[in-house]
Every structure is written in C-alpha cells, then in structure tokens.
Write a protein that binds this DNA or RNA. Structure first.
Length: 409
RNA sequence: CGGGGUGUGGCCUAGUGGCUUAAGGCGCCUGCUUUGGGAGCAGGAGAUCGGGAGUUCAAAUCUCCCCACCCCGACCA
C-alpha cells in the first residue's frame, strides 16, 4: 500500500480526551477514531490489525474443533426473561415500531441455546463447539481506557455443549491451551497468566487470562513460580497459589484479555436443552463459554508494546510486514516496493513528498516491525531497521528479505 | 450511579467583564526553497467560544439549567 493514499494522516498530538496509552497512540497513528465514549471506528490500519487478531483466534479455535457461526446482535427480550437476565444493567433495551421488546446482545447464551435445541437430540450429536466473532453491546456505566472497555466491541465467543462433566472438563483444559497459543501469537503471551476467578452467581469458579501491566484495571495475585494467579475477587477464599499453595504472591495490576467459564446447566435448564443418552434417559446438557474481546486484546498489545516514539507491533499482527521509506529516491523505492510484494510481503510504502524526518517519525509511530530505507546514501543497498530493538544494518535487498522471512538467504 | 475536572477553527492551547475586529502552535492551501529524525521564508483559508436561558451599557469571561468528554470510585454475566 502506498502511504500517499493511506487514510488518514497521522497526527503529532493526541486529542486531549484520550488519556490512555493505547488510545493516544492508536488515534495519533491513525488506527482508530472515537465516535463517542466507548465506541470507536477502526480505520484502515486498525482494521488490518483487528483482522489479523481475528485470524489467529479463528485458527486456534478451529484447531480445538470450533465451528464458526454468526448470530444476530438484535435479540428478542423474551429470551432474557426466560433466563432471568432481563434486568442486568449493562443490557441495552429497544423496541420495534409495534412495541416488541428487544435487547442488543451483550453475550449469546440466550440465542445459542435455543438454536442448538432445535438440532440436538441424541448423545451422538454431542459434543459440539460453536463460536462466532461478532459485535457485542454493553451499556457500561463508565466506558474507559480507550478501547479497553467499550460499549460496543468485537468479541469471539465460543459455547461448548457436552453430555457430561468429564467431557466438559476435558474440553475446558483444551481451551486453556488454545488461549495460551492465541496470546503467545498476538504478542502478549509473556505477561499473560491463567487466573483463578469467581464464577459469578452460577458457578463456583471460572478462569481468566490476565495480562500484567500498570494500566490494568484488575488486581491479581501472581505466583511467580507456577505462573498462575488469583483474582482479587476471590482472594479471601483462595489466598495461596492454587498449584503449589505458596503464599508468596505478587500483587499486580492487569487486563482481563480472556475468560473461560463453566456454565454447568444454568442455560440448558432454562431452555430445557436435553439429550437422550445411550441408556435411553433424557439428560441435561453441560455447557461452557469462552470469550476474548478483540478490541481489548488489540489495546492490550499496544499497552505493553510501545516506547516514547510509538507502537511496536508484534510480527504476527502488525498491519504490514515492512515499512519501506524512500527518501528522495523514488525510482529505486518503486522497484524495491514491487520486488518486496513479489516476495509475498505486505508493504507500506512511504512514497509521500515529505521530509525525511517526518517519514521516519511516522514510521516509529505506526510501529511496523521492520523498516527499510532507500535514499541517495544507501547506494544500491538498503538500510534495514528493527523497530523493537532499534538494530540497524546496511545490506542487499535479498538479504533483508531473507531475514524478514526468517531465513538467512 | 457518587465525587472531581474539562469544553475556544480539523488537533493542541492562550485569553476569565471593555485594551478582542477572539490570539498562538500543529495541520491545511499557494509560491519559492529544502530532504537521514516531525525544515525555512512569504502569502492565504478556516471559529454558532459545547447548547439554552439570564445579569449587564458591554459576556468566550458572571449566574442558572442542560449536554458531552476525561479521571477516581462503585459496577463489570
């Protein structure tokens, strides 16, 4: 993509109503734009990152048997009366022209359970794992921290249906591994910990994936040896490491980037979701749900991967592989742009008629992992710079391509 | 929802009763010049001073009401 045509331009200063690091950098660099509190537009660069996060999640969830569907955001209110969730204060309510009551989906148990009920009868139909990547609406009393807590956001929500507890437990463990893989691939694995958390009103426990960062709004107690943590909300009942029982726990601020939750029979009971087992007896279906907020994950990546000059994207979710900059050397720049694309690389090519300084500053701000500069000074070679380390070297284009692709030519 | 704060060209800010015909920086347009860390010069466009109602000879500035946004807290199925 030629940067001369990229919408929008970057900005030197952040709007004063954005305080959080993630929003300041993402807005300045042109990834997102705020419409109103907790509601953001994803601009071309931001959408590219969001789609890459989506791709990682999709691959890992497919790998544990997930089948992707897409459910509506507009839900009949009556489904929430059935589960008793109609009075939850984060639900957005609305009415049709004829007075029929609707809510905007904050989660999809009320939709997916009646859906599954239409098709599942036998133990032979189980287990089943359905997920979607879809927009959620939550009427938060206070939206905050840029895209970390929004009123409208993309979420991957997976629902699993099992014939018994043992089968559920087995899948629950698999989901933990899938989640770890996801957080590793999007570049927050090192500071993200499995965290024991409350199960709310219908389960004894749940597990969260908490990313440790000073800008987090949750508080966890981390066992550095076992690399698991306990959420503050249950520290009274669980005041030691759940694995090694150590009481040497570190208090850390963190962001909840994922949550996995045993639903037991809470929703299957409400909708009378049953199956007939081998022995001919009708039994309740055991459920689990598994969520990851995509925008929050994106914001978290920025919170823990940045420096004074801008964002530092992890390789797998960067908007482009390479930021190519021509400083007064468009002929060679154009040729290298074509060559990089021929090699299957995604390139943002700064072909703008700007000064060298502003191009280099923008490259740091946008944060693409590898920068290649061609100028009158590079004399047929290219200058390659790694955003994260600042490491810079002069080399032949082919050598640079080899390094970027992970081989050494 | 409780507490605190902020609203002035697209963005950041100054101005807090008359010296204001609302100022400066960034950005934008035109021309010249410049090109390795957000260049320079000259000219130019762009503002219901968040909204409404009041006080006053006079309001961006004072009063009241409302709205929006941010922060702290509570909440967070």
């Amino acid at each position: 993509m030629k940067q001369s045509t990229l919408f929008p331009k970057t900005s030197k200063n952040a709007p004063k109503d954005e305080i959080s690091t993630n929003a300041q950098l993402l807005v300045r660099a042109g990834f997102i734009n705020k419409l109103t509190a907790g509601v953001y537009t994803y601009l071309p660069l931001g959408l590219r990152v969001l789609k890459k996060i989506e791709k990682v999640i999709r691959e890992e969830i497919n790998a544990i048997g997930g089948q992707e569907i897409y459910m509506p955001a507009l839900h009949p209110h009556e489904n929430y009366v059935i589960t008793g969730r109609e009075n939850i204060d984060i639900l957005f309510h609305l009415e049709s022209a004829t007075g029929k009551k609707y809510v905007l989906g904050m989660s999809h148990e009320e939709i997916v359970v009646p859906l599954v009920k239409q098709y599942i009868n036998s133990y032979k139909d189980l287990p089943i794992y359905l997920y979607q990547i879809q927009t959620k609406f939550r009427n938060e009393l206070r939206a905050k921290s840029g895209i970390l807590r929004g009123r409208e956001f993309m979420m991957k929500d997976l629902y699993s249906f099992h014939k018994n507890e043992a089968d559920f437990e087995d899948y629950y463990e698999k989901s933990k591994i899938a989640y770890k893989n996801i957080f590793n691939r999007i570049g927050i694995g090192e500071s993200t910990y499995l965290t024991f958390a409350s199960g709310g009103t219908f389960s004894k426990y749940s597990h969260e994936f908490q990313t440790v960062t000073a800008s987090g709004e949750d508080l966890i107690y981390l066992c550095p040896k076992c690399e698991v943590a306990v959420n503050k909300e249950i520290i009274n009942e669980q005041n030691s490491c759940p694995e090694c029982k150590s009481k040497d726990l570190l208090e850390k601020k963190s962001i909840e980037v994922g949550n996995i939750f045993p639903l037991k029979t809470k929703f299957s009971k409400a909708f009378d979701l049953m199956y007939t087992d081998e022995d001919g007896v009708r039994k309740e279906i055991i459920m689990g749900c598994y969520g990851i907020g995509l925008g929050r994950a994106l914001g978290t990546v920025v919170e823990i991967n940045n420096d004074a000059n801008g964002i530092i994207w992890p390789k797998e979710i960067a908007p482009f592989d390479i930021h190519l900059i021509s400083i007064n050397n468009d002929e060679e720049g154009d040729a290298i742009y074509a060559s990089l694309q021929k090699n299957g690389l995604e390139v943002l090519y700064d072909d703008r008629k700007e000064t060298a300084g502003s191009k280099l500053k923008d490259a740091d701000l946008i944060g693409i992992p590898v920068r290649i500069v061609v100028s009158k000074k590079t004399g047929g070679d290219v200058e390659m710079r790694i955003r994260k380390t600042g490491e810079t070297k002069m080399c032949k284009l082919n050598e640079a391509i080899g390094i970027i692709k992970g081989t050494n030519v």
